[in-house]
Simulated assay, not measured.
Amino acid sequence: MTRPPTAAQRRVIDAADPVTGRLRGTQAQLAALVVRGLAFRHPRPPHDFFLTPAGHRIREAAPEPPGAAEAAPKAAGAGGVFAARVGGEEEPAAGPSRAREVHSAWQGLLELRRMTNPDGAADRPCGWERTHLVRAAALALEAAGHRAAGPDGDGYRVRATPQPDAVGVRGPDDETLRACAATLKGAGWQVGEHTDSRTRDRYLLASPRRV
């Protein structure tokens, strides 16, 4: 069994950028993570280090410290870890700061595509998005200016589905669904419109395009 990272290595992993996986640490720490298959050095200048999929899994499997669950909503609204709005959660403070966070996260995701897709393509989803379907689809929608549903408001809602490679997107009307479909297609997703057999509501089923 592979030995777990040391405490110092774990701190470097936990401090990685939540979207791109960009790492900061001493050269010795970063090199050790590369040897263990938890990081890679980008071949182009400035040759920064980034988490591999294995490194991301270790980072996301970290047990939360006591009180983290209670503090999470406050952190997300007060400069904590960025999270795209999936719809239905408490709406974060709007304004220029939120717009900058969303823009920065989207640009970071495009860079991650360029770095990790075999052909360097930024027009289709990368491996990180395929393992974070809801967050990735929500980021594409929020970055394009779509409004997520508040606790009692209208807007899009992105949810996991029984299909392991697809998310469901719902909205208050057909116009919203069509706009969301166009955005996701432009972001490299395959999108189809469907009708719920029980409620007869229309919804989107979206999955990352592979080619």
Rank of each mutant, 00 (worst) to 15 (best):
G80H: 02
L177M: 06
R170P: 07
P66R: 12
V86G: 14
A54S: 12
G153S: 15
A138Y: 03
R159I: 03
K185L: 13
A61H: 11
E175V: 15
A71P: 01
P151H: 07
G108P: 06
D174W: 11
T116N: 04
E90D: 12
L51H: 03
E101M: 12
R59W: 12
A62R: 14
P96V: 15
D165G: 00
V86W: 07
P151K: 10
T161L: 10
G188Y: 04
R178T: 10
F82G: 06
A72M: 09
V102M: 00
A93T: 15
V86D: 10
G77F: 08
V169M: 05
T52H: 04
F50Y: 15
P53K: 04
P125R: 01
V158I: 09
L51N: 05
E101N: 06
G55C: 00
W106E: 02
T131K: 12
E142V: 07
G120L: 01
A105L: 01
N117V: 07
G79W: 07
A94T: 11
G145M: 04
P53M: 03
A76M: 13
G171K: 00
T161D: 00
R98H: 08
A61C: 12
P172M: 04
M115E: 11
E89S: 12
G150D: 02
R57M: 11
A105V: 11
P65T: 14
A54M: 06
R114D: 06
N117D: 01
F82K: 03
A121G: 11
A138T: 04
I58D: 05
D123L: 05
A138K: 05
R135H: 13
G168W: 04
R98N: 00
R130F: 09
Q163S: 13
P53A: 05
A121I: 10
A75E: 13
D173F: 08
Q107A: 13
L110T: 09
G88S: 08
